[in-house]
Amino acid sequence: MLYQEFVRVVKEEMNRELRGGAKASIYKAVKNNGKEKQGIIIETSGINISPTIYLEEFYEAYRTGKPLKEIIIEIVNFYEKVKCKKPWNPKEIENYASIGRKVVFKLINTEKNRELLSLVPHIDILDLSLVFYVLLGVTRDGSATMLIYNEHLTRWNVNMERIWKDAQRNVMQLLPAQFYTMRSILETDTADEICMGDREEKNLLQGGYIEYDSMYVLSNTIRNLGAACIIYPQILEMVGDILQEDYYILPSSIHEVIIVPVSKGLVPEEMNRMVKEINETQVLDEEVLSNHAYIYERTKKKLKGCSLQSAGIMLG
Rank of each mutant, 00 (worst) to 15 (best):
K102T: 10
V103K: 05
V103G: 04
F105H: 08
K106V: 08
K106Y: 03
N109G: 11
T110N: 10
T110D: 08
K112N: 12
N113K: 11
R114A: 12
R114F: 13
R114D: 13
R114M: 13
R114L: 14
L117C: 12
S118W: 10
L119H: 14
P121L: 03
L126W: 09
D127C: 13
D127V: 14
S129G: 11
S129E: 08
L130T: 15
F132K: 04
F132H: 07
F132W: 04
L135T: 06
T139S: 07
T139D: 01
R140T: 10
D141P: 00
G142A: 07
G142W: 04
G142L: 06
A144L: 11
T145R: 03
L147S: 13
I148S: 07
Y149K: 14
N150I: 05
N150L: 08
N150P: 10
N150S: 11
E151H: 15
H152C: 04
T154P: 00
R155I: 02
N157Q: 12
E161G: 13
E161C: 01
R162W: 09
I163W: 09
I163G: 03
I163Q: 05
I163A: 02
W164P: 00
K165C: 03
R169H: 02
R169L: 06
R169I: 05
N170Q: 06
N170D: 04
N170I: 02
V171P: 00
V171K: 04
Q173C: 00
P176E: 06
F179N: 13
F179D: 08
F179G: 09
Y180G: 05
T181N: 10
M182A: 11
R183I: 10
R183G: 00
S184R: 14
S184K: 14
T188I: 06
T188D: 01
D189W: 06
T190F: 08
D192W: 02
E193T: 12
I194N: 01
I194G: 02
C195E: 01
M196Q: 06
M196G: 08
D198K: 14
D198Y: 12
D198E: 11
E201M: 15
K202I: 14
K202C: 07
L204R: 15
Q206L: 15
G207D: 13
G207A: 15
G207T: 15
Y209C: 09
I210C: 08
Y212V: 03
Y212K: 15
M215I: 06
M215V: 04
Y216E: 03
V217I: 10
S219F: 05
N220Q: 05
N220F: 03
T221K: 13
T221S: 09
I222W: 01
R223Y: 04
L225E: 01
L225D: 00
G226L: 05
A227W: 07
A227K: 07
I230Q: 09
Y232P: 03
G240Y: 07
I242V: 15
E245H: 11
D246E: 07
